[in-house]
Amino acid sequence: MGPLDIVNHLLNFVAPAAAMALVLVLLGRLVGSRSASAMAGWLRWAILFVVGVAVLLAGLVLWGRDGKMLTYAALVVACATCQWVLVRGWKS
Rank of each mutant, 00 (worst) to 15 (best):
H9K: 12
H9S: 15
H9V: 12
H9A: 14
H9E: 10
L10Q: 10
L11H: 05
L11T: 11
L11N: 06
N12E: 11
F13Y: 06
F13K: 04
F13D: 06
F13N: 09
V14F: 11
V14E: 03
V14M: 03
A15M: 15
A15N: 10
A15L: 13
P16V: 00
P16Y: 05
P16G: 02
A17E: 08
A17H: 04
A17D: 02
A18Q: 01
A19R: 08
A19M: 13
A19S: 15
A21R: 02
L22G: 13
L22M: 14
L22W: 08
V23C: 09
V23I: 15
L24E: 04
L24M: 09
L26K: 09
L26D: 07
L27A: 13
L27C: 10
L27W: 08
L27F: 15
L27P: 01
L27H: 03
G28P: 06
G28V: 07
G28D: 02
G28T: 01
G28A: 03
G28K: 12
L30K: 15
V31D: 00
V31L: 11
V31N: 05
G32M: 02
G32F: 00
S33V: 07
S33Q: 15
S33N: 09
R34K: 12
R34Q: 10
R34F: 04
R34L: 10
S35W: 13
S35A: 14
A36T: 05
A36S: 13
A36C: 00
S37I: 05
S37R: 12
S37C: 08
M39E: 15
A40W: 01
A40Q: 13
A40C: 08
A40P: 13
G41F: 01
W42F: 12
L43F: 14
L43W: 10
R44N: 04
R44Q: 14
R44C: 04
R44V: 08
W45M: 01
W45N: 05
W45H: 09
W45R: 02
A46R: 06
I47N: 00
L48A: 08
L48V: 00
L48M: 03
F49D: 02
F49L: 13
V50Q: 02
V50W: 03
V50K: 02
V50S: 14
V51P: 02
V51Q: 04
V51S: 02
G52V: 00
G52W: 04
V53G: 08
A54F: 00
A54S: 12
A54Q: 06
A54G: 13
V55Q: 00
V55Y: 07
V55C: 09
L56H: 01
L56W: 00
L56R: 09
L56Q: 07
L57I: 11
L57S: 03
A58C: 04
G59S: 04
L60I: 05
L60P: 06
L60C: 04
V61W: 11
V61M: 10
V61D: 07
L62G: 01
L62M: 14
L62T: 14
W63Y: 14
W63C: 01
G64D: 06
R65K: 11
R65G: 08
D66F: 12
G67Q: 08
G67F: 07
G67S: 01
K68W: 14
K68G: 09
K68F: 14
K68H: 15
M69E: 14
M69S: 13
